Structures are given as structure tokens and as C-alpha cells.
Amino acid sequence: MPLTGSCMCGAITYSAEADEYISALCHCTDCQKWTGGAFTSNAVVPRSSFQVRGNPATYDAVGASGKINKHFFCPTCGSSLYTELEVMADMVCIKAGTLDNGKASLDGKVDVEFYVKDRVQYLGGCEGAKQEPRFG
């Protein structure tokens, strides 16, 4: 079953023909700024499986790796939709809150947490998730 989702206003929709995905939280300070929250929750899928309908706006940020993190968002409602990272050129990081059908829950599991060195103090690690101080 494909993953589907959209921005808040529905102007941009997407789908990923991926039966499986990597569920990841990122606690880096860039993701905190990107979401206005403590972390991003992501469904990481192969870029070849991902299709977008509509015209998202983009913002490029240089990550801790020195590589570009391209953020895609709706220019109308401002919803953060997905990120393409130069360090993972073959993958797309879909922002879980934009997924349809209750998938924001990431099916109740988190595979990995990145940048736990930047995790806010009031949060603990997710049980069973690999804990990475940085990316990779």
C-alpha cells in the first residue's frame, strides 16, 4: 500500500510506492527550527518511489555535514512536507505529520533517532530505536 500525504491546504500532494520505510526522528537544531518543535519525525523512502503533485517551495540549508539539506514546503499554507539530503541522495525524508490515514504515528515504531546530542532535555529516547549522536 503506498504512502500518501499532503500539505494542510491540499495544494500539494505526494505518494511513495514503498511497502517499507525507515522511521526516523531527528533532533538536530536545524530540524528544531524547521518544525518549530523539538524534532522531526520522518518516513524515509527511496527517492525513485516518490512522486509530488503541485509546486512546493524550497529552502536550502547547509547541514552539519557541509552538504545541502533541501527543505520542501507549501508556499500557500507553509506546511513542511519533505527533505532531500545530499548525504542521502537516493532517499526522501517525508515529514510524518503530513502523511494520510493516521501514518503520522509511523506505525508505532521508531527505527532510529539522529542527533540525540541535541535532543531536548525533557525527552527520552524511544525504546528499541537506534540512538545516533549525529547522522550516520
Rank of each mutant, 00 (worst) to 15 (best):
Ile68Tyr: 02
Tyr59Pro: 04
Val87Arg: 14
Tyr82Gln: 01
Met88Asn: 13
Met88His: 12
Asp30Phe: 07
Asp30Ser: 14
Leu85Trp: 14
Cys31Ser: 02
Ile94Pro: 01
Ser65Gly: 05
Ala43Glu: 08
Gly54Trp: 09
Asn42Ser: 12
Cys31Val: 07
Gly66Lys: 11
Val87Ile: 14
Glu86Gln: 15
Val52Asp: 14
Tyr59Trp: 15
Ser79Ala: 10
Cys28Glu: 11
Phe39Ala: 05
Ala24Tyr: 10
Ala61Leu: 13
Pro56Ile: 11
Ser48Cys: 10
Thr29Ala: 07
Leu85Phe: 07
Gly36Pro: 01
Ser48Tyr: 06
Lys67Met: 04
Ser23Tyr: 09
Leu25Val: 08
Asn69Lys: 01
Tyr59Phe: 15
His27Tyr: 08
Val92Asn: 05
Thr35Cys: 00
Thr58Cys: 07
Ile94Leu: 10
Cys26Leu: 14
Gly78Cys: 06
Gly66Ala: 11
Ser23His: 14
Thr76Tyr: 00
Leu81Ala: 02
Gly63Trp: 02
Leu81Glu: 04
Phe39Ile: 02
Cys74Arg: 07
Met88Thr: 03
Val44Met: 04
Ser65Tyr: 08
Phe50Ile: 13
Thr40Leu: 09
Thr35Leu: 00
Gly78Val: 07
Thr76Glu: 04
Ala57Gly: 06
Leu81Cys: 06
Ser49Lys: 06
Asn69Phe: 05
Tyr59Ser: 06
Pro46Met: 07
Ser41Ile: 14
Cys28Leu: 14
Gly63Asp: 09
Val62Thr: 15
Ala57Ser: 13
Cys31Pro: 03
Phe50His: 10
Asn42Arg: 09
Ser80Ile: 01
Asn69Thr: 00
Trp34Gln: 07
Gly37Glu: 13
Asp60Arg: 08
Gly36Asp: 10
Lys33Pro: 00
Gly66Phe: 07
Thr76Asn: 09
Ser48Met: 09
Val45Pro: 10
Thr83Asp: 05
Lys67Gln: 09
Val45Gln: 11
Gly63Val: 00
Thr58Ser: 06
Ala61Val: 15
Thr83Arg: 10
Lys95Pro: 01
Phe39Asn: 10
Cys74Tyr: 04
Phe72Pro: 01
Pro75Met: 13
Phe39Lys: 07
Lys67Val: 00
Asp60Asn: 10
Thr76Leu: 00
Val44Asp: 02
Thr83Ser: 09
Ser79Gly: 12
Thr58Phe: 06
Gln51Cys: 04
Thr40Asp: 01
Cys74Leu: 04
Tyr59Leu: 13
Glu86Pro: 03
Thr83Asn: 08
Gly63Ser: 12
Gly54Ala: 03
Gln51Ser: 13
Leu85Asn: 11
Cys31Asn: 05
Phe72Gln: 02
Met88Trp: 04
Ser79Val: 03
Ala57His: 06
Ala24Leu: 13
Arg47Lys: 15
Asn42Ile: 10
Asp60Pro: 02
Ala43Trp: 03
Val92Gly: 01
Cys31Lys: 02
Ser79Trp: 09
Ala89Gly: 10
Gly54Leu: 07
Ser65Asn: 03
Ala43Arg: 05
Trp34Met: 08
Asp90Asn: 15
Asn55Cys: 02
Gly54Glu: 10
Cys26Thr: 12
Thr40Phe: 00
Gly66Pro: 00
Asn55Phe: 07
Lys67Leu: 12
Ile94Tyr: 01
Asp30Thr: 03
Asn42Tyr: 01
Thr35Ala: 00
Phe72Trp: 04
Ser65Ile: 00
Ile94Ser: 01
Pro46Asn: 13
